[in-house]
Design a protein around this nucleic acid. Structure first.
Length: 197
DNA sequence: AATTTAGACAACCGCAGGAGA
DNA sequence: CTCTCCTGCGGTTGTCTAAAT
């Protein structure tokens, strides 16, 4: 245990005063020893929370707001190369954080999944070629086969997140479903076939 | 004008890996 | 060598706001 008093740990959005306090202490002690900073600053936050706040919001040089078209393109390219290695992708986008990129990607994929659902409901509902999703140009042909359980089929309780998860994973065949990828894959209700057409 | 929906952003959680005792 | 603690990463959830109905 980190020895934090659970009863006094604060959660939720940071206030401006907390931000200033954190920034001061990071200035003093550097952006490394987060548990220490959390303690000496008097902030009732965990070291983890302090680090996250600094990295994603307070750190100098961060860009906020919409992604530029060049940034979007970079994300697409790097994601097709590295998959969900957000921090790695972020290192190639100065001023952007892994969290930001992850959020951007998630939103984008959700949108794609919705578009797909619309179009697929008017055509064949049970299979999907990746090119239909509009993401894939340089992948082997991959076909989704939805194995929707009966009780879920009726009300389309077919999570968009699951769809985009699968799409995201498939974009990076080199990742080989390691670690949490594997975990998520096992939970999935979609099976995936790679066809060699 | 009120309500609902979608998008964007912020923050938490669990886990894994590395460093140091 | 083993254990503990800390940090960083990726996934997930919550919140806020703008747009649509």
């Amino acid at each position: 245990m980190a020895g934090e008093d659970q009863s006094t740990i604060k959660k939720g959005p940071w206030t401006e005063a907390e931000d200033m306090q954190l920034a001061c202490y990071v200035e003093l002690f550097g952006d490394r020893r987060w548990d220490f900073i959390a303690k000496v600053s008097g902030l009732k936050r965990t070291g983890k929370s302090c680090r996250l706040r600094w990295v994603n919001y307070l750190q100098p040089g961060l860009k906020h707001g919409r992604m530029a078209p060049e940034e979007e393109e970079t994300i697409l390219n790097l994601h097709s190369l590295w998959g969900n290695r957000w921090s790695r992708i972020a290192r190639n986008l100065p001023g952007r954080t892994d969290n930001e990129i992850k959020n951007y990607w998630r939103t984008r994929m959700r949108k794609k999944a919705q578009e797909w659902r619309k179009t697929s409901s008017s055509s064949s509902p049970s299979s999907l070629n990746m090119t239909d999703v509009g993401i894939e140009d340089n992948m082997p042909n991959i076909i989704f086969v939805a194995e929707v359980e009966e009780e879920e089929e009726a009300d389309m309780d077919y999570s968009l997140d699951q769809i985009w998860n699968e799409v995201g994973e498939l974009e990076t065949p080199s990742i080989n479903f390691e670690g949490s990828y594997k975990k998520e894959f096992n939970k999935s209700r979609i099976s995936i076939r790679t066809s060699s057409m």
